Amino acid sequence: MALRCAQNLREFRKDSLKHYSADIVYELERAGESFKVQQQAGSLDQLRRCPGR
């Protein structure tokens, strides 16, 4: 089973705000009544720098 999702991360360091967006795909396998992550793959779609406040 494949699960696709978006991930957003904001990092504030040294008076600078960075915004990262990624498209992540998880390959899941059945483990009893739940699922386990078998593989994770992703690509960084966008890297945007925003001015610090």
Rank of each mutant, 00 (worst) to 15 (best):
18 K>F: 03
38 Q>M: 12
34 S>A: 15
47 L>F: 08
40 Q>W: 14
52 G>T: 11
17 L>A: 09
1 M>G: 07
22 A>M: 04
32 G>D: 04
43 S>C: 14
35 F>C: 06
4 R>I: 13
12 F>L: 07
6 A>K: 15
16 S>D: 02
25 V>W: 00
35 F>V: 09
6 A>Q: 10
8 N>L: 05
4 R>W: 04
39 Q>L: 13
23 D>K: 11
42 G>A: 13
17 L>H: 05
24 I>L: 13
17 L>K: 02
17 L>I: 09
11 E>V: 03
33 E>V: 15
41 A>H: 06
39 Q>K: 13
19 H>E: 08
20 Y>N: 05
3 L>W: 11
35 F>S: 09
2 A>S: 12
50 C>L: 15
39 Q>A: 13
31 A>Y: 12
49 R>A: 05
12 F>H: 03
14 K>T: 12
15 D>Q: 06
45 D>L: 15
52 G>L: 01
51 P>D: 05
39 Q>M: 12
2 A>T: 13
51 P>Y: 04
10 R>A: 03
14 K>R: 04
43 S>A: 15
47 L>S: 03
32 G>R: 05
40 Q>E: 15
27 E>Q: 15
16 S>E: 01
10 R>Q: 07
17 L>M: 05
5 C>M: 13
5 C>Y: 09
15 D>T: 08
36 K>D: 15
38 Q>D: 14
17 L>W: 06
29 E>L: 08
28 L>D: 02
8 N>C: 09
24 I>R: 06
5 C>S: 09
4 R>D: 10
34 S>L: 12
50 C>R: 14
2 A>K: 14
42 G>V: 03
14 K>C: 07
21 S>T: 11
9 L>E: 01
21 S>G: 10
5 C>W: 02
14 K>D: 09
19 H>T: 03
38 Q>R: 14
1 M>H: 06
35 F>P: 01
28 L>Y: 00
28 L>N: 00
20 Y>S: 03
53 R>G: 11
12 F>V: 01
51 P>H: 03
42 G>Y: 15
17 L>G: 01
8 N>G: 12
16 S>A: 05
12 F>P: 00
19 H>N: 04
13 R>G: 03
14 K>S: 04
